[in-house]
């Protein structure tokens, strides 16, 4: 450290933040998706990102939240202010966080957890039956990677697919890599099949 006062913020604060919030229950792999996105953005795409997760007694078993703030510049405030994308995997998460989604924000949800007829008017939403699709590859534990595949389609202008695949490979246990890559593909293809570009 230099002993003289330094001006650390020569560039204007980056207001062009891109914020993703993922929320559901503990055990759905919410925290893992956040971490994978962080590694993809920062280590492989060389962008800046901050990943935080819900923290408190409620994070054990109950509601669970993971956040990613991404920017080409510095990130100061580390938490989501108004989410650009909200990945919602439980009704509780929907009720808690829906009002923190930007008006033109994107909502990705699992229709088996969040009935689509309860969605507030005005939000553009995408359905990904992540749990159901994950069962097809043998275990609901891959639902987070299915959701990640679907999420990727929504944020692909900000993230390189190859970077995300590398981050997945580095973050999941070696013995489940094949299933995870498959789950990622299923999520991605589901979105392409159901929603036009």
């Amino acid at each position: 450290m230099n002993s003289e006062p330094v001006n650390a913020y020569n560039k204007p604060s980056q207001l062009d933040r891109f914020e993703i919030r993922i929320a559901g229950f503990g055990g759905q792999g919410v925290v893992t998706i956040g971490r994978i996105l962080g590694v993809a953005f920062t280590v492989h795409d060389r962008k800046n990102s901050v990943n935080t997760q819900s923290y408190g007694p409620e994070s054990r078993g109950g509601a669970c939240r993971s956040e990613i703030v991404m920017s080409d510049g510095d990130i100061n405030y580390p938490y989501v202010r108004k989410a650009d994308v909200f990945v919602c995997l439980s009704q509780t998460a929907y009720d808690t966080y829906i009002h923190d989604l930007k008006e033109d924000g994107l909502l990705l949800l699992d229709p088996n957890s969040v009935p689509t007829d309860s969605i507030d008017d005005g939000y553009k939403f995408y359905s990904i039956p992540a749990m159901e699709l994950a069962r097809q590859i043998g275990s609901v534990k891959f639902q987070n990677t299915v959701a990640l595949g679907a999420l990727y389609v929504l944020i692909k202008e900000h993230l390189n697919e190859e970077s995300l695949r590398k981050a997945i490979a580095e973050s999941v246990p070696r013995e489940t890599l094949e299933e995870n890559i498959k789950a990622f593909g299923i999520g991605l293809e589901h979105m392409k099949a159901h929603y036009a570009e």
Binding site: R35, T42, S49, V50
Partner: peptide, 10 residues
Amino acid sequence: EETVAHMRER
């Protein structure tokens, strides 16, 4: 603080 100890960042 918990904030800085738990966050993941570059």
